[in-house]
Design a protein around this nucleic acid. Sequence first.
DNA 1: TATGAATGAGGTTTCATTCAT
DNA 2: CATGAATGAAACCTCATTCAT
Lengths: 194, 194, 194, 194
Amino acid sequence: MQSGRQQRRGDTRQRIQDVALELFAEQGYEKTSLREIAEHLDVTKAALYYHFKTKEDILISLFEDLTGPIDELIEWGSRQPRTLDTKRELLRRYSAALASAEGLFRFMQENQATVRELSIGEMFKERMLSLMALMQEPDTPLENQVRCMSALFTLHAGSFALKSFEGDPEEKRGAVLTVAIDLVSQAHGDDTRR
Amino acid sequence: MQSGRQQRRGDTRQRIQDVALELFAEQGYEKTSLREIAEHLDVTKAALYYHFKTKEDILISLFEDLTGPIDELIEWGSRQPRTLDTKRELLRRYSAALASAEGLFRFMQENQATVRELSIGEMFKERMLSLMALMQEPDTPLENQVRCMSALFTLHAGSFALKSFEGDPEEKRGAVLTVAIDLVSQAHGDDTRR
Amino acid sequence: MQSGRQQRRGDTRQRIQDVALELFAEQGYEKTSLREIAEHLDVTKAALYYHFKTKEDILISLFEDLTGPIDELIEWGSRQPRTLDTKRELLRRYSAALASAEGLFRFMQENQATVRELSIGEMFKERMLSLMALMQEPDTPLENQVRCMSALFTLHAGSFALKSFEGDPEEKRGAVLTVAIDLVSQAHGDDTRR
Amino acid sequence: MQSGRQQRRGDTRQRIQDVALELFAEQGYEKTSLREIAEHLDVTKAALYYHFKTKEDILISLFEDLTGPIDELIEWGSRQPRTLDTKRELLRRYSAALASAEGLFRFMQENQATVRELSIGEMFKERMLSLMALMQEPDTPLENQVRCMSALFTLHAGSFALKSFEGDPEEKRGAVLTVAIDLVSQAHGDDTRR
DNA sequence: TATGAATGAGGTTTCATTCAT
DNA sequence: CATGAATGAAACCTCATTCAT
């Protein structure tokens, strides 16, 4: 039972994903080469191809971990009554989901052009539209649509954008969530808030 | 006075910038090759290098057109009294500036990872922080800081994100601006609004 | 046991070095392109980059075969008494070392400007100064310093410069060595010789 | 009658030659680009083409200044009696010629591979052989041929090789010349020297 | 489960050179 | 006497990918 460097057994696939996400988020997808990923892992490029069919496949695999939770969230949302409370809960849950996949979201946020071209783009756009649909009243004025969109964006971008500010991350997430909930509340036509 | 293909006048530099922006925005900076730009212009790659020292230089030149207006805006803002009206006017003017450089902003929005690595990144971040500083009250709670940030993001992302919606662009811009102004008003501690 | 074109064994690296040295010596380093080297080997350029990180790296690798022997020679010399016999033996051994790496030395001789700019330049200069130091008496007049330098140059240049003369190579090498030894003997203040 | 930058009139050709020699000697012929030369002169590349037909032409023009003096020297030598004194005078005059074209000779010394491929190579090689012929006795042993060659090399390389030594340049040139004369004297079978 | 060796396409950049003005 | 604009060729280098072992 050796340890250290050599004790990696069946976890290579996972390790590839970890390193890939880290580098994709840091430098962008296009600028990150498979050589770089392989070197970080002390493996050859060919090894990556044992685990993934193409470079894009690595990226797709990263998103798969995320598709499930969001799909569940959407499904949950679509079974609830369309009340303001539901919307608030939706945002809370979404915020939690984002927090647990921060790297991936930072990547999405910063590589929209790349993602758009890849097969994931469409997939992701659909989810966003579904989420927005759940939070919107029918025939609401344009401003309110913008508010919902803005709420989602605020959640997406909030965490990284606040990186340079002082303060504990959980507290920041709370503030971001508050603002998002506010926006959706206003879009809902909430009287208790004003 | 012949026209068409052969009309090499003094406009090549400008034409390079136009095509580059178009392609950068559409496909991303890294995925757009100089060959591609050159072909769109019916010029050789070497011609691009006559007008710009590097690929990054083309990008930088695109931003230079934008730096000026934003700097002026910041300067104007810093000379005004820090009232809510000033803030609203700031957003109005910023929205107008964005509208007049839409392509560039779409590019920025969708290629953040790329921009961050390039020399422009720092430049741009500074401007954003300055703008936020102008819109914020001193010692305001974290939520209000998020609101200001969110207002800027909403302006940035708003126009493209609404592309898939029906409606006239100016009307959309109006809605986006309304939401942004709302956010900043709330951050200002506006009583008239709630 | 097939042979010919397809015999890719473990010798590619060596074959690259052989061809590179041949072409560098013949045409100069700058004028020799990687395409040319690759074509001579019936390999793609990319294959060269599998074995060497840069063009300069190929050159450096060629020199590494030489550094060892010369370093050993210098070390040997520094452990001997500084007699005339030692100096003569030093030249004999150096001449032998040069003969066994003729191509490389022809290259050095004819591409000094290139070598000087590359990392090898400094390395090589140091060795020369060490060798000269071993052959010189302390506080010897300038003429004698020139004689030692000239002895080294004569060894370096001798073999190729005599290419156009008739005669067997070993005999030429002997003549060159004789002259070099003579020069150092005179620099040593040898009485037996005059 | 303006002065400063603008007062260059008919001297551009000369200035191109000066800068070119400087850069060729410093970096080598191949590594020096016409762009670089032009920039050093604050002129466009196209201007170089007004004065010289090709890059190689610039180099050739540099050598033309040297061909004359050496040809005269060879001619003078061939009209003298083949005594030792003549040979010594030949070396003295050659040394003087070299000193007056130091940059060019440094260039030749350090870019032999380049020069060999260019049309100048053959020209120069001929001169060297002629000079050697003038200094050699008929049917002299190989060692003596090497001595003559070594004498020429010593003159060529001496000045730059001694750059790192202390001492006044003229004194160094004297020492180098002394050694060269010694070598040729020995090759002549001089009794007075031993 | 992985590696060593290689490929083909394509990237950015630089070069010497030309020519109308 | 010189420039501004451009070209065609080629340079070095990197990438994603493949495949026999």
